[in-house]
Each structure stands twice: as structure tokens, then as C-alpha cells.
Amino acid sequence: MVAAQVASGVRAEPVRLTSAVVLSLAASAVAFLAARCGLRRAGGAFLAVATAGYAAEWVGVRTGVPFGEYSYTSVLKPQVGGVPVVVAVAWGGMGLAAHAVATVLAPKRRGWRWALGAVALTAWDLFLDPQMLRLGLWTWADGGTYRGVPLSNFAGWLLVSFLIMVLIDVVVGPRFPGVSRGLVALYAVMAAMETLAFAVVFEPRDVVVAAAGGVSMGTFAALAWRRAWRR
């Protein structure tokens, strides 16, 4: 995943490696969770999150709710109903990682866990949206204040991410068998990888995105990493 992400920043056609990054992310997330609760529940949680993410995107491109008015270009394929399949896969992979981070930070308080997980997952979009816009994978109807992204997008992410955190808890079950350190590490690696990519790899570089995403994801990663390795 790291190799594909770095290569995507230096090759002339980086979009070809986008799917490789996402598929590696998703496979790693499912494997780490399966080691804790079995492949059936891990696969079920991933499919539930991917389906929820796809549904939110399907509604979003048609109505502008909950993210704002946007549309996908034809670059990412295959697409179903105007939504690239790889986008749903990305929701699934990072959804599981963000849930693990939140579970470390609030293991016994479900409401706090769902809220923290929603913010942790939304923090990833501080990197994701600017990166995908520069690759021409989607467009916003009216642009926005954060690197061309409207603030409504992040409000929508918080809402969908909160529902995803609830969904993972429901599918995995109330007796969650401990937190996967692998998922926490996956979140931390993604935070570091995206920060370095925007700071030194991508052309043109973007220190604003590197700082915003790095501080946001990095804070969650550092706190979760510290607590996870104390267990």
C-alpha cells in the first residue's frame, strides 16, 4: 500500500495506482479484524460499511445530500449507478481502521466511540478530497473553501461516518474481542503516508493539506497507538 501510494505521486499517471492503494488498504483491514473476531464477522462488517458508503455516495451524486453537489468523472472504473466501486471499498477499509482507533480511545462508552470514530474517519477526508480533486476523479459544483471542497462535505462525512461506527458495532457484536493493533497501525501508517505525500512527494506539494490532515489524523493515531500498546 505504501509503495503504491508513493509511486502514485511520482508517476505521470498516478490514478492507475489508486485502486491498488485502496484494495491493499481494504485487504489489510479485513485481515487484521479477522484475526480478532473471525473472517465471517470481519467480512460482514466490511461489506456492511462498504454498502453504507456506496448508498451515501449514490444518494449524494443524485441529490447533493449529505455532502453537497458533486459528481464523479469517468476516470475511476468500474462504476455502478455513477459511483466507482473502489470508493465503496475505501469506505470499508478506512471505516474499520477508524473504528479500531475509536475503540481504543473509548472502549466502554459506545456513544463516545461512535463520535470519535466519526471524527477520525472524517479526518482522513482532509487528505482524500484534495488528492482526488487534483487527479480529476470527481468535481464539486461550486467549489469550496478548503482546497475547492465545501464545508458541507465534511458535515456529510461526519454524519455518514457516525452511522458507519454504529453499523460496525452491530455487525461485530457487543462482545468485541479486543482491539486489533494492526488496524490502529494501519490508520497510523495512512496518516504518515498521506502527510509525507503532500509534503514532499506529490507535485505540486501542498503544505496546507499536509498540515491539516497530518495534525488531525496524527493526533488520533498517536493517542490510539499509545493506548493500544499499553494493553
Rank of each mutant, 00 (worst) to 15 (best):
V2N: 10
P14T: 14
P14M: 13
V15C: 01
R16M: 13
L17Y: 15
S19P: 14
A20C: 10
V22W: 06
L23E: 03
S24A: 15
L25C: 04
L25I: 08
A26W: 03
A26L: 13
A27G: 06
A27W: 04
A27L: 12
S28V: 14
A29R: 05
V30Q: 06
A31T: 12
F32T: 12
L33R: 15
R36N: 07
R40Y: 00
R40E: 02
R40S: 10
A42W: 06
A42Y: 09
G43N: 12
G43Q: 14
A45H: 05
F46A: 13
V49F: 04
V49E: 04
A50R: 10
Y54T: 11
T63D: 03
T63G: 02
G64P: 05
F67M: 02
F67I: 01
E69I: 15
T73D: 00
S74W: 01
S74K: 11
S74Q: 12
P78R: 11
P78I: 06
G82L: 10
V83A: 11
V83I: 12
V83C: 05
P84T: 10
V89K: 06
V89I: 15
G93Q: 04
G93L: 05
H99S: 11
H99Y: 11
A102M: 11
A102H: 07
T103Y: 03
T103V: 04
L105Y: 08
L105W: 05
A106G: 07
A106D: 02
R110M: 11
R113S: 12
L116P: 07
L116A: 10
G117A: 10
V119Y: 02
V119S: 08
L121E: 01
A123I: 08
A123T: 06
W124F: 15
D125Y: 05
L126Q: 03
L128T: 14
D129W: 05
P130H: 06
P130E: 04
Q131T: 09
Q131G: 11
Q131A: 14
M132W: 10
L137N: 09
W138Q: 12
W138D: 10
W138M: 13
T139N: 14
W140D: 00
W140G: 02
A141V: 10
Y146A: 11
R147H: 14
V149H: 09
N153G: 05
N153T: 05
N153P: 02
F154V: 13
W157Q: 12
W157R: 12
V160G: 04
S161D: 05
F162W: 15
L163Q: 03
M165E: 14
V166N: 00
V166G: 00
V170Y: 05
V170I: 13
V170T: 06
V170E: 07
V172F: 00
G173Q: 07
F176Y: 15
F176M: 13
G178D: 03
G178W: 01
G182L: 05
L183N: 08
V184M: 06
L186C: 07
Y187A: 09
A188Y: 01
M193C: 09
E194F: 11
T195M: 09
L196V: 15
A197G: 07
A197S: 15
A197W: 15
E203S: 12
V208M: 01
V208R: 06
V209Y: 00
V209R: 04
V209M: 00
G214R: 10
G214D: 04
G214A: 08
V215G: 03
V215H: 01
G218C: 07
G218V: 09
A221V: 10
A221T: 10
L223S: 07
R227P: 01
A228E: 04
W229T: 13
R231F: 06
R231M: 11
